[in-house]
């Protein structure tokens, strides 16, 4: 099957800053794909190159098998939902949605009909006559979606689509976006710095760091099998134990990651289960989060491990206070070895 999007050794530098360092990437038709990374990692540059707002210094970009490296944005069958929505304030909601048809010379009546359909699709049928500033953030977001979808693109690009929304709305929109993508069956590529968003919505996630893809995997693999220290700490904030410390704990000369919720917290004298890796430490701080608590335990001069305790599973933190000595233990299989 021809990939919907393909990047071949794409490089883009701004002055001396290399935003994207020879990135290759293939995205299948109908895939829900996330570009995840902290700011400045190259994920947004990657999206802008696919949209055509920017051109790579070297490498190639293919859409549906055709080289579009030098194709301007108006000639690409790709549409974008912008982080700030970029709705035109001097047009009504319906005119905004119909804009893509207007510039293609579609007649007014047909434009109005299709714009109405699109607004119905995003459940804003009644809002066509309003101006963008009369809508809430979540409604504007849906207008931006309708406007981008009206040209029936092969690929929809979303730049931090949920970044400007509050928590509750963000969760609703996650469900809505996922449902919309499944109904339309087109490729969605979205940029986010929120690993929770990437894990819950995407089929596959590319984790970006310093202009490179650190790891490209399914959410489950990324979470359970991070390959690098960066991925381990960025996705799901796992503990990363560096080589020197790992050598002392396990005898193996290789860095590893261990998730906070997979570490058992024991009182100083309490024995660990057979075969567990264990170490002693001192509690640095305790943070109460409601359903769970998070402690940080210093196990040697340079290593502090986070430990998560679920309140409901009988793992409260009573008795564990800052400064008290404790033991930590985990099953060797739960530690994920990392690449250097």
């Amino acid at each position: 099957m021809t990939p919907a999007i393909e990047l071949r050794a794409t490089r883009r530098a701004f002055g001396s800053v290399v935003a994207l360092d020879s990135v290759s990437l293939t995205i299948a038709p109908g895939e829900f794909f996330a570009l995840l990374g902290p700011s400045g990692s190259g994920k947004t540059t990657c999206l802008r190159l696919i949209a055509g707002f920017d051109q790579p210094d070297s490498g190639a970009i293919l859409l549906d098998g055709a080289d579009v490296t030098n194709t301007p944005p108006f000639a690409r069958n790709v549409n974008t939902v912008f982080q700030d929505y970029a709705l035109f304030p001097h047009m009504t909601v319906a005119e905004n949605v119909a804009y893509g048809l207007r510039v293609r010379g579609i007649a007014r009546a047909e434009r109005a009909r299709q714009a109405g359909d699109m607004l119905d699709l995003v459940r804003l049928g009644e809002f066509g006559a309003r101006r963008p500033h009369q809508l809430s953030g979540g409604q504007r977001q849906r207008v931006a979606l309708a406007r981008a979808l009206i040209n029936r693109p092969q690929v929809l690009l979303l730049d931090e689509p949920l970044g400007a929304l509050d928590l509750k709305l963000r969760e609703e929109m996650q469900v809505e976006l996922k449902g919309l993508q499944q109904r339309l069956g087109i490729t969605f590529v979205f940029v986010t710095h929120d690993q929770g968003e990437a894990l819950s919505m995407a089929d596959r996630v590319a984790v970006f760091s310093q202009g490179r893809i650190e790891q490209l995997d399914t959410p489950r693999e990324l979470y359970n099998r991070p390959q690098t220290a960066f991925v381990a700490s960025f996705v799901g904030s796992a503990n990363v134990v560096e080589r020197a410390a790992a050598q002392k704990l396990t005898g193996q000369d290789r860095a590893f990651a261990i998730r906070p919720e997979l570490i058992d917290l024991l009182a100083a004298g309490e024995p660990a289960a057979d075969g567990y890796v264990q170490c002693a430490g001192e509690i640095v701080d305790v943070l109460y989060h409601g359903a769970s608590s998070r402690l940080r335990v210093q196990v040697d001069e340079r290593t502090t491990l986070a430990v998560a305790r679920s309140e409901s599973a009988g793992g409260g933190v009573q008795g564990f206070t800052t400064g008290s000595r404790v033991r930590l233990a985990w099953r060797p299989g739960h530690a994920v070895p990392l690449r250097d």
């Binding site: 055509g52 707002f53 108006f74 974008t80 700030d84 035109f88 893509g100 510039v103 293609r104």
Partner: peptide, 12 residues
Amino acid sequence: SWVEASMDLGAR
């Protein structure tokens, strides 16, 4: 982003 959105939607 307004100019980009316009181009993105097919405007010359």
